[in-house]
Computed example of a mutant assay.
Amino acid sequence: MKRKKYMLNNIEKITERRKMAAEIIATVTNRLRSGWNPWADVSNSRQYSKFEDVIGIYTRYLQKLHANKTIKDSTFTDYRKRIRVLSEYNNNRTFPIIYIYQFDLSYMSDFLDYILLDRDASARTRNNYRVWLSSFCTWLTEKQYMDYNPVEKIKSLTEEEKKRCALTHTDLRRLKEYLEENNKYFLLICQMEYYTFIRPEELSNIRLRDINLKEQKVFIASSISKNRKDGMVGLNDVLIKTMLDLHIFDNDTNCYLFSTNFKPGYKKSTTRCFRNYFNKVRNALKFPDTYQFYSLKDSGIRDLANSEGIVIARDQARHTDISTTNKYLKGENMTVHEETKHFNGIL
């Protein structure tokens, strides 16, 4: 509670002074009941909206986007989780905020500290929450619940490198031999990741109709692509042979490429299934934890870049810039052009 004074001693007559005081009291009381705060610096009435109400509107907004396929299932699930964590944080505060204008820079900074310190999250997780907060504040600004995006003043933390590395050539051969004997359908999944660089979420949505066997290419529609753009990638001869050996194309073209037990079917598999089975294989082969399912993409980009050049690897990976492709090439895996070794310079 804070005291705010309205000085009326400039009014000479006591009766007029009391009349003015009564009017001020009535006006201020009504405004306070509607959520007004005499110390709040707001530019419109929307900023007096209740925090919980705005969260509810934002949640319904996301539900509509999800229903219209504007955002992916994973994005929708991720955003809902972050909203839930934010709501729990606010409810557990000694003095939770009530109005959206209280959702300011200091509050957001405290929330990110809560994620990092109280929830013992990594810098990467904290930064992911920061990205989501920025997206949320952009929506709030667009809807005039706030005047600007405060998250722009909050810096990202330096992150540790991802604990993921490409498989060595020896381990790739061991993986192939193991899966040829134990699960040829999952071998096809691993080969798809290694040769096509299709992201796991996209891979789970590929249908047989997306594959052009004659031209050896697969179409990734904008509706399932991460960057929301149509894409086309080449299918290696090894992939075509594996598919034919497994009679993949004997199935209906509307089937997903990977369904139950990683075989074609009408119910798509999930990226979690890919990861969980890969981890079982990793344990069986006593591979290090730094080997993850996505490591197959790292391995494929490394090997294609070293064999055919980084530009070809960039296009196959559907990267907009070579700098993105370079992130998959670490240390000894990075290419050096032979021409640089024998260039006759002036100096």
Rank of each mutant, 00 (worst) to 15 (best):
K184N: 08
R174D: 09
R272N: 14
R314K: 15
L188Q: 03
I220Q: 01
G345N: 09
R282G: 10
V336K: 13
I83Q: 08
E142H: 11
R80H: 12
C255V: 02
A67D: 07
T170G: 00
E177Y: 10
G345E: 13
V238P: 00
D113I: 06
M192S: 12
L167W: 05
K19E: 14
D250L: 14
L187Y: 12
A121P: 00
S109V: 05
E12R: 06
N306I: 11
D289A: 11
H319S: 06
N276G: 03
E201L: 12
I14Q: 06
N127R: 04
C137Q: 03
K162P: 08
Q144A: 13
N44T: 02
L246H: 05
N149W: 00
H169T: 14
R82W: 09
R119Q: 12
T138V: 05
R302Q: 11
H337D: 12
F278E: 07
T168W: 04
L244T: 14
R174N: 10
T15F: 01
R282H: 06
F219V: 02
Y61N: 06
R207Q: 15
T340Y: 13
S34P: 00
Y61K: 05
F136Y: 08
F287K: 03
T340L: 14
F274R: 01
R119Y: 05
N254R: 07
H337Y: 11
Y129D: 03
K176I: 13
E215P: 00
R318P: 05
E332V: 04
D147K: 06
N236V: 00
D245V: 04
T325Y: 01
T260A: 13
K263Q: 12
M334F: 09
